[in-house]
Amino acid sequence: MPDPLAVVVAGPAGSGKSTLGRAIAARLRAPLVDLDSVTTPLLEALPADALGGHWLTSSHAAAIRSGRYAALRATASDALSTAGSVVVVAPFTAELSGGDDWHALRDALRPAEPVVIRVDGDPAVLASRRHARGAARDVHRPDTPAVAPAIPVIAVDSELTTAQQLARVLPALGLRRPVDRDAAVFAREFDAVLFDLDGTLVDSTASVVRSWRRFAEHFDVSMEALHANHGQPARTLVGHLLPADRHAEALAHVTDLEVADAVGLRPIRGAAEFFASVPPEHRAIVTSGSVPIATARLAAAGYERPAVFVTVDDVVNGKPDPEPFLLAAERLGVDPARCLVVEDAPAGIAAARAAGCAVIALTGTTAEEELAADLVVDGLDAVRLELTPAGALRLVPA
């Protein structure tokens, strides 16, 4: 961990920034300075008529904001100077614009250069969360349109769980999962690498959750069942959730949702470089998604479609059945036992193992204890591939 370190967690009300900020502070063992904790109790204790109305809508709102953030900066500066690190949480709407407010925050956190994490999500979801928590101040909160940050930020989607958010944030802060350099997979040679798509090559987890949440709302079904069956084909999920006479309608609906949401997706950490390092004739993508969904996500994240591209439309039995990986190996003309699979979900890992393949698992989607793989890493930049003189592929620690 760099020293000194200042982490700034920004985002609108209801985005979960305080929860994430607290989790980061706990992992860093750093002081947490939250704007609400520092200033809200005082403001709530003052009579509204003394402030010219509620402090969020008062005629003195600009001055109140200026005072709140001055108190936040001073407290954060003290924490950083004494502890060597600090996590600061607030909406930071003005600061993200990169103007005077941003420079004031940077100056307060010197000599650290702040790492800014911005949590955001579907406005309807954030509004629902605010309503559910019932905080009195939310009744008075002005509806401020979101503005794209003018400073570098680590974007985090509020659809993700706190653990999933941490899996994306901590490596960016230099906190990496150690690579087991004694893992037996490093002693093996492979003829091909078979990649899962979602959560492995493309960071589509939030998009998947958002699409299926909208699906669940539309069809009035349980989100718990969806979470319990991650990594399995949509037709399997639909089969668990709805009667047979609604399957076609449901599959068409969720396909439309997922294709429409495949916008602005990014590659998983290190995945684009790792994928490109595999010779085209030695790689395949094996996904539980349909052709339209998988194609949309590949394009959104900037990948070229490989020659061997196995989707749920190509198989009778999807993951956790081994059929998808066996078909990919067959199309590549290689022995499944000499294939390395890259996965992120228990269903995919089970399918790969049943096919006789070795498996690397990526954190970020599923709890680490559920990843029964030959090697678990927090990004594909933690490993790399070497080509042996005989033309085989060998995995090595980066």
Score class of each variant (00 low, 15 high):
256 D>W: 11
31 P>Q: 13
188 R>K: 15
174 G>A: 08
321 D>H: 15
167 A>T: 01
347 A>V: 12
360 I>N: 01
178 P>T: 04
143 D>Y: 03
336 P>W: 01
230 H>N: 14
160 L>G: 01
150 A>C: 13
382 A>I: 01
378 D>N: 10
297 R>T: 00
48 A>L: 08
244 A>V: 15
166 L>K: 09
101 D>K: 04
104 A>S: 13
96 L>R: 09
380 L>G: 03
326 L>I: 10
385 L>S: 00
60 H>S: 12
365 T>R: 12
47 P>G: 08
103 H>G: 00
385 L>P: 07
354 A>H: 11
18 S>N: 07
97 S>F: 03
73 R>Q: 07
193 V>N: 00
102 W>V: 04
310 V>F: 03
230 H>G: 14
366 T>G: 00
182 D>K: 02
255 T>S: 15
56 L>R: 13
24 I>D: 02
228 A>W: 03
213 R>F: 10
85 S>W: 04
391 G>M: 09
372 A>Q: 15
115 V>F: 13
329 A>I: 05
158 S>K: 01
159 E>V: 08
365 T>H: 07
156 V>R: 01
279 P>A: 09
182 D>V: 02
386 E>I: 14
84 G>V: 12
251 L>N: 07
333 G>W: 04
349 I>V: 11
200 T>G: 06
340 L>G: 06
10 A>T: 03
216 A>D: 10
242 L>M: 09
70 A>N: 09
290 S>F: 03
192 A>C: 13
396 V>A: 14
336 P>I: 02
59 S>E: 15
157 D>T: 08
385 L>D: 02
217 E>A: 15
23 A>S: 11
140 H>M: 08
109 L>T: 06
164 Q>M: 10
60 H>R: 15
104 A>H: 11
238 V>K: 10
188 R>A: 15
94 A>Y: 00
162 T>G: 05
148 A>S: 11
357 C>P: 12
373 A>V: 01
182 D>I: 01
334 V>Y: 06
246 R>C: 05
87 V>D: 06
379 G>Q: 08
390 A>L: 12
242 L>I: 12
296 A>H: 10
118 R>I: 00
187 A>W: 00
285 I>Q: 06
133 R>L: 12
379 G>E: 09
74 A>S: 14
363 T>W: 01
395 L>M: 11
244 A>L: 15
263 V>T: 14
192 A>Q: 05
76 A>N: 12
186 F>T: 02
390 A>D: 14
215 F>P: 07
315 V>A: 10
101 D>C: 05
122 D>E: 14
21 G>E: 02
228 A>K: 02
177 R>I: 12
294 A>K: 06
273 E>H: 10
25 A>M: 07
309 F>W: 10
207 S>Y: 00
58 S>H: 05
307 A>S: 14
3 D>T: 15
189 E>I: 04
371 L>G: 08
22 R>I: 04
28 L>N: 09
6 A>Y: 07
138 D>Q: 09
319 K>P: 00
74 A>L: 14
89 V>F: 07
192 A>V: 02
113 E>P: 01
343 E>G: 05
92 F>D: 04
230 H>P: 02
362 L>Y: 00
273 E>N: 02
381 D>E: 13
79 A>H: 00
